[in-house]
Amino acid sequence: MKHSEIYRQRRAPYGFPFLDTEATKLLQDKTRESQSVLQSLGYERVMPPSLDYPDTFSDNERFDSFRTRDHLGDDLSLRSDVTVQVIKGYANLIERSESPVRRFFYTVPVFRDISRSYPALREVYQIGAEAIGLTAASAVGELLESARKIMQEIFQESPVFLTGDVNAYYEVEKFLGRDDLRDIVRNKNAPLLAQAFLSVGLDYGDAENLSRLLLFAPVTNEEYNSRWENLRPGLPLELARTLENIRSDLLSLLQNLPVAVRSISRIEPLLIRKTTYYTDFIFEGYIQGIKSPALRGGSYNHLVEEYSGQSMPASGFALDLSALSRI
């Protein structure tokens, strides 16, 4: 028998580990702690299906590796993201619901390719919360406060939150007439972004300074404000006006966050998510020692309407509990 066949017989597939009793207990304890935080804040548990129609998931999250078919031959995919599933489920409940404001949470595994440069299929255990019917400004504060409590509880450490507005990215994309900036922004590649600004006629200094301010904002809001005020007169009017509006919305969001959240939150002027349904504020939460953000979320104001016909704001987050094993 070949060595690889013996390996297959005795081991779980790479990326899909068998959790031993110790790891299971840790995950179970941390899940319970997280759930009790969310339940105490009025979130109700839902259990979306493991499989769904591939169109349910955001465009960038469909992977052939996780496809199967139902008895009619229709494609099904293991879930890569739970938010849309929860909204689909909520759309069916909406007519029966007495109050349009509903809060849900889930704890489920999702299936993803987590690497940008090589295939790395993984089963990721997530706890997520969705607040439906609350405006983005009030939902983000509530969600970040519950995420802070959960992260503090399970990682025994205070997170740092980065908060941005996805519209700043779309505005820059529109201004530059390009739709290929996601990698440049995700890698915060300031020299490449500056080149893009130069190519549409910004002068060298403004292009360099704007790209650095958008991607590497200074720590204090005072410093950020003063640099923005220096830069603004040199920018094309429409771009300056839109970025200014987004900036003041972000500053006001930050100002209205619960005190404990505000002190660990930073503005990230140009932030973008891989998932494409976000329409407003987005955020990430980091824990020291974990390579990628353990928490991701934001506001998605079109999804409820898409599935239920009723216009309603909504926001949510997903926290990667598998990150526990990476500390």
Partner: peptide, 11 residues
């Protein structure tokens, strides 16, 4: 060439 997941502030 390598597409590392790093940030690039300055040339």
């Amino acid at each position: 060439e390598h597409n590392f997941e790093v940030l690039t502030p300055v040339a």
